[in-house]
Computed example of a mutant assay.
Amino acid sequence: MSSESLQLNLSGGVDPVEFENRLREHLQALSGLLYFGFGRNLPGSWGAADCTLDLLFADTAPANLDSVLGELPGIAGVDRVAYRRIGGGLREPGLTGGIWRTLLLRVRPQATAEQRAALERDLLRMPDYIGGIRNWQLARVSTPGRWTHVWQQEFACVDDLLGEYLIHPYHWAWVDRWFDPDCPDWTVDAIAHAFCPLQSSLLGRAASNPDN
């Protein structure tokens, strides 16, 4: 299986409901697509696009993915990354009506292998301290581009993300040092923070596939 996360910018004046309907129609042309998740990013997203689109394929992504998206009216820009999961977990695989959060991040080229490994370890320990993270996944980007990692979480409501998660002591007193250029442990030099409504758990569906 293969997974992709895309940030989509929409052209001015595009109706997001009509766009989503057309998107669903176009995605039917993709061979091997197991499922997809789509949502309009909410206010407070930072460094991201207008919408988040996640795709899971039975095998590698089809070669015509770019052309299918290019034929879809209303797309002004695409930031596309393929990735491979390195860790994650589920507390509530049947979650519905929640929030899907995607953090794209770039490990700076000067970072050591030890710093990279420690960053990954600390991110994956966040759910041990932050109960509002219902499901989570950390992955390394497998395609060329500016991003190196994708850190995804599912929350029951937006307050769990903007409240407990962002202000938790483990977050700002421990994890933030990897993102702070004034700290000796500085490892991440760019991020894109996006969150959008989630109809049903994407990570729960991925885990239900025995090949994932």
Rank of each mutant, 00 (worst) to 15 (best):
M1P: 14
S3I: 09
E4M: 14
L6W: 01
S11T: 13
P16S: 01
F19H: 08
L23M: 14
E25P: 13
L27P: 14
L27F: 15
L30C: 00
L30Y: 09
G32P: 05
G32A: 10
F38Q: 03
G39T: 02
G39W: 01
L42G: 02
P43N: 05
P43G: 02
G44L: 12
G47S: 01
A48P: 03
A48V: 02
D50L: 04
D50M: 05
T52G: 06
L53I: 00
L55I: 06
F57W: 07
A58T: 02
T60P: 00
P62Y: 02
N64P: 00
L65S: 06
S67N: 11
V68R: 04
G70W: 06
E71G: 15
G74A: 05
G74C: 01
A76T: 04
D79A: 03
D79Q: 00
Y83K: 03
Y83A: 00
I86N: 11
L90P: 13
R91M: 11
E92W: 08
P93M: 09
I99W: 10
R108T: 07
R108W: 02
A111D: 06
A111K: 03
A113F: 01
Q115F: 00
R116K: 14
A118V: 10
E120L: 12
R125A: 13
R125T: 05
D128W: 08
Y129V: 09
I130V: 13
G132Y: 06
L138M: 07
L138F: 08
T143D: 14
T143Y: 09
G145Y: 07
G145D: 11
T148M: 06
W151T: 07
E154P: 11
E154G: 06
D159Y: 13
L162N: 10
L166F: 12
I167M: 08
P169Q: 12
W172N: 08
W174A: 12
V175L: 15
D176K: 04
R177N: 10
P181L: 04
P184Y: 01
P184S: 01
P184K: 01
I191Y: 11
H193W: 13
A194Q: 00
C196E: 05
P197E: 04
L198N: 09
Q199Y: 10
S201M: 07
G204W: 09
R205Y: 07
A207D: 13
N209Q: 11
N209S: 06
P210R: 04
N212E: 10
